[in-house]
Design a binder for these strands. Structure first.
Length: 695
DNA sequence: AGCATCCAT
């Protein structure tokens, strides 16, 4: 008897003992009978691993692939591994996965796990998803931006029966899997589709609050210490059993592991980032191997932004095999006063520029009335539309331009893509590709907590910036990329210069990916080619200006800058910038992003000359954003439209010689008129939306 | 004079 056989049998028994197994036939029927189906069940009910297998066994794959999306890469990969194991096939054959930089699928793949972003990319190439028989959106309650967009797209495409049958012999089926809390809302959104609940066996969980973290400690960043302290208390004071600890990220997990190792070498622990409901899960078996129905214990730190709904869901994990206890490290008062009920969905708190371009490229022109599960503020949509117009991705009627069709191919913020394409048109993409990649990864500069080491790191970083020419943070990023890449030992180089090697490695992969996309697009006949006539030393910054001219700021008094986006926000150069303390020498700058902490800071900054943006700046204000979303033509009457057009003509006549800053101030009044109209339209839309969902 | 979330294409 060989070991693999034994474990396979065990795994098979495990699958049959899962709560979902008893509902197999009914589930398959429910998927077959409905275009939309919501499935809910506790973590561990087996819905993620088993449902796709049931659908496979039922033969759905013959009509097209069974696709399953996950909000996170690790989840997509590890679930695919497990399912291929359970189905006894090689990963990448019948069962595969696709995440960015890692496509483990083949011609034979019929059960495909992937990130939600990957499926969105696939829809761009094949809007009808003609290779799929069923798409399962998993973890919909997490409300990731891409899952929300997929939900809206699939609703829009499939609820329209006419469209659904067009170009497809078998209608696509959509299963949305979610935690119990969100199912009513999801069902209503999807035309009141049925909800299939997999009842889970759960045992009572008693929760108790801690004493260390109260309302005054909202910013407490050292909560890991408290977690470790409570873990050790539970370890020595409570009955035997497993302990689960929820932590916010990889670095917190590492920190906790280090501390535990220092304080209690005898504890056997491992961490596991495969769990789908948390970012990191630390498992501490207390006394060697445990019986399975041991009392389970959990405690929850208050990571910045954790919500009551998430905390409650996690506490439920303690009651999966027997009664359990949940130890929270924060006080009852903290729970009452500091924690929100739910997370604001990502779609309502992020820049929508890239998403709106994707929608437009998919033929969704009226992006304001797109069916959003939770509608983002109209202001955010209009802002995205304006930015797309400004970087030539859409024309003034809101139609995607040839350039926009090229831009959507890049996994970048459209402004950055615009700068890259400008450089490519001059044949100098080599200076922009690394910058685009470096701006796509997390901060590459390490800043240790230890004061001495911090000084040392800051010094090294300043030296790098100076060596790169100084006074241009974009150029610093380019140089760091090139130096590291050219080094004999890139990882040692990073260590020496206090640079995140992991971040740089991913910047290298991203640069390669961007280069490949660019090369593919350059084969096309309509790829823009231009000749640069200015000074060679200005080429780099001129390219950046093409993409970033909506991020222009001008120094007003002292170290205070004012943004030129019409808001006139007072901003400062971030202390990490090579332009910090050089403000007196500056006049106009462009910046990559703004960060709000004690002040509004500009991060990644570069000085420019006013002449470079002079002709571009009026574009920030000359257009009516409603028209960009195709709403003006349908909603505003003829008279209003005529008024708008004459106003626009007047603006264009104003010319650009007058002092830009003064002009922008003047427009604040005009903006308030626009706002009033925006509110009116918003109300009207809400009424319409209400009618749609209650139909 | 003073810097911080995480995930994803």
């Amino acid at each position: 008897m060989s070991k693999p056989n034994k474990s396979e049998t065990k795994r098979c028994d495990e699958a049959k003992s899962l709560p979902i197994f008893q509902h197999k036939a009914k589930l398959i029927q429910a998927v077959k009978d409905n275009v939309f189906l919501v499935v809910t069940g506790e973590t561990g009910s087996g819905k993620t691993t088993q449902l796709p297998q049931y659908l496979y066994e039922a033969g759905l794959w013959k009509a097209g692939k069974i696709g399953v999306t996950q909000p996170r890469r690790v989840a997509a990969i590890t679930v695919a591994q497990r399912v291929s194991h359970e189905m006894r096939c090689t990963l990448g054959k019948e069962v595969g996965y696709q995440v960015r930089f890692d496509d483990c699928t083949s011609q034979d793949t019929v059960v495909k796990y992937m990130t939600d972003g990957c499926l969105l990319r696939e829809i761009l190439a094949d809007p009808r998803l003609s290779h799929y028989s069923v798409v399962i959106l998993d973890e919909a309650h997490e409300r990731s931006l891409n899952t929300d967009i997929l939900l809206g797209l699939l609703k829009k495409t499939l609820l329209d029966v006419h469209k659904a049958s067009k170009g497809r012999s078998v209608p696509l089926r959509v299963v949305v899997m979610s935690a119990t809390l969100e199912t009513g809302k999801l069902s209503a959104f999807l035309g009141h589709c049925p909800v299939f609940t997999i009842p889970g066996r759960t045992f009572p969980v008693t929760s108790r609050f801690g004493s260390a973290i109260g309302p005054k400690d909202v910013d407490s960043s050292s909560y890991v210490n408290e977690v470790v302290r409570v873990a050790l208390d539970v370890h020595s004071g409570e009955m035997a059993g497993d302990i689960l600890v929820f932590l916010t990220g990889q670095s917190e997990i590492e920190k906790a592991c280090d501390m535990l190792y220092e304080k209690a070498e005898n504890i056997d622990y491992r961490y596991d980032v495969q769990d789908q409901t948390v970012e990191g899960l630390l498992i501490l078996p207390l006394y060697g191997s445990m019986p399975t129905d041991q009392q389970r214990q959990i405690f929850q730190p208050p990571p910045p932004g954790i919500r009551k709904s998430e905390a409650q869901q996690r506490a439920g994990r303690a009651g999966r095999t027997s009664a359990g206890k949940c130890f929270r490290i924060y006080t009852n008062e903290f729970w009452e006063k500091c924690m929100l009920e739910y997370t604001v969905p990502e779609i309502q708190r992020t820049s929508l520029t890239a998403v709106v371009l994707t929608l437009k490229c998919l033929g969704v022109h009226d992006v304001i009335r797109f069916p959003y599960l939770d509608r983002p503020e109209e202001r955010l949509i209009l802002e995205a539309l304006k930015q797309l117009y400004q970087c030539d991705a859409i024309d003034r009627r809101g139609r995607v331009t040839q350039l926009g069709e090229l831009m959507v191919e890049f996994p970048l913020h459209p402004g950055l893509t615009r700068a890259l394409l400008k450089a490519a048109s001059f044949g100098c993409e080599d200076i922009l590709l690394p910058v685009a990649a470096m701006l796509s990864v997390e901060n590459i500069f390490i800043r240790p907590g230890h004061p001495e080491k911090q000084k040392e790191a800051d010094k090294k970083h300043r030296r790098l910036a100076a060596k790169a020419g100084g006074m241009n943070d974009f150029a610093t990023l380019l140089s760091v990329f090139q130096w590291c890449k050219a080094s004999d030992s890139p990882s040692a180089w990073c260590k020496d210069h206090w640079i995140h090697w992991r971040a740089l490695k991913s910047a290298f992969s991203i640069e390669t990916q961007l280069r490949e996309i660019l090369q593919r697009l350059q084969q096309k006949r309509d790829f823009p080619v231009e000749t640069f006539t200015g000074k060679k030393s200005e080429l780099f910054r001129r390219c950046l200006c093409t993409g970033y001219f909506s991020n222009v700021a001008r120094r007003s008094v002292g170290k205070i800058f004012s943004t030129m986006d019409g808001h006139g926000t007072a901003v400062h150069v971030h202390p990490s910038s090579s332009l910090f303390e050089q403000e007196a020498e500056l006049d106009w700058v462009i910046f990559h992003d703004m960060m709000v902490t004690s002040r509004v800071y500009l991060r990644t900054v570069c000085p420019i000359r006013y002449e470079w943006v002079k002709d571009l700046l009026p574009k920030l204000h000359e257009v009516d954003a409603y028209e960009l979303s195709n709403i003006a033509r349908e909603e505003v009457n003829e008279e209003e439209l005529a008024k708008l057009e004459s106003k626009e003509a007047k603006r264009q006549k104003e010319g650009s010689d007058e002092d830009m800053a003064k002009k922008l101030e003047k427009r604040n009044d005009e903006a308030s008129v626009g706002d009033a109209r925006a509110r009116y339209l918003q109300r009207k839309l809400q009424r319409q939306q209400h009618t749609t969902t209650t139909l």
